[in-house]
Design a protein around this nucleic acid. Structure first.
Lengths: 165, 165
DNA sequence: TAGTAATTAGACCAATTGGACGAAAAAAAA
DNA sequence: TTTTTTTTCGTCCAATTGGTCTAATTACTA
């Protein structure tokens, strides 16, 4: 009956690519027309996969927040080496991803954030990586230090504080 | 000749209040009409003070980024106490202020950020406070840890990592 | 009181927005 | 081939956008 396309897989692919546009332009700065053009399809086709703009945005944040993997850690390597690799990996998209996160959390109060499934899933999957690298006890502290280093570096526009390889 | 109003002081007051609206709604999500209504004046009046939307936004970021003072530090108190007070103070508006910063930096590359006067002025004024609290040598590290703690706490929706009073 | 300049209000404009809709095109099943 | 269902396209709409312009209002000076 249908065309060959795997609807779900195609949706995820679109959402993943659309995430870049959202984080580059912000939620309100992104129009369905423009993101459709960016993805190379018509507005109607985009609406076929995502009934509303918010549906698309939520799919995007899910894709971004999910795309992180505890297999990243190299058990052979030292903590230093692992943190340096992780830092380099995260630095690439830190600005755009944080912009997306702040857009997503905008207007939510702490209670709502704590209850937000996507956000909590995301940060827990980050945490797992730090537990694997630095152990349960020091994980939170190391995570805060690395995020903070990236944040301050981002605002400086320089590599200064974050570990690096 | 004019009405009594001090044009410059009035502008700054408007910008300071408008900053809240911008960080709550994002740049593209803020319309001149709505922010004018929020400020309690007409759109034309707002345009009288800020010729374009971008002028208003820049004035807002300047107000927010400038509003930080090295006199915050209590030389009598311990480092712990100073950091706890600073954390509590920054936690209040951390989400909205970071949202504004990320909106401001959106699309800029590291070189442009490093060359951006407002951003560099802002982070240096932060840094001064940390130098006063923890000394020149440890200032950057402590700053990164505190920012990171606030960031992770914000994403958790809980007080967990940041120092607190 | 009359004059003058800063301030405000409201109508107006072209462009863009999110979304709805019906019809065309594509590809599988019969 | 014919049917059926998914995917795509282009058009249309009311609402909102940033910004301009003219007219009214204000509060000071003379």
């Amino acid at each position: 009956m249908p065309k060959i396309i795997d609807h779900k897989a195609h949706s995820q692919d679109l959402a993943q690519r659309a995430a870049k546009y959202f984080s580059d332009h912000g939620y309100a700065g992104t129009s369905m027309r423009k993101v459709a053009a960016y993805l190379g399809l018509s507005k109607s086709a985009l609406y076929h996969y995502f009934p509303t703009k918010e549906d698309l945005f939520l799919a995007c944040t899910k894709e971004v927040m999910a795309g992180f993997d505890a297999e990243f850690v190299d058990l052979e390597a030292s903590e230093e080496e692992n943190l340096a690799r992780l830092t380099d990996f995260m630095r690439k998209d830190f600005g755009t991803e944080m912009a997306l996160v702040f857009d997503y959390l905008r207007g939510k109060n702490p209670t709502e954030i704590a209850a937000d499934e996507a956000m909590q899933l995301s940060i827990q999957s980050y945490r797992k990586v730090f537990v694997a690298i630095s152990g349960e006890e020091r994980a939170d502290d190391v995570m805060a230090r690395l995020f903070g280093g990236l944040l301050v570096d981002y605002m400086y526009g320089k590599r200064l504080l974050a570990y690096s390889g």
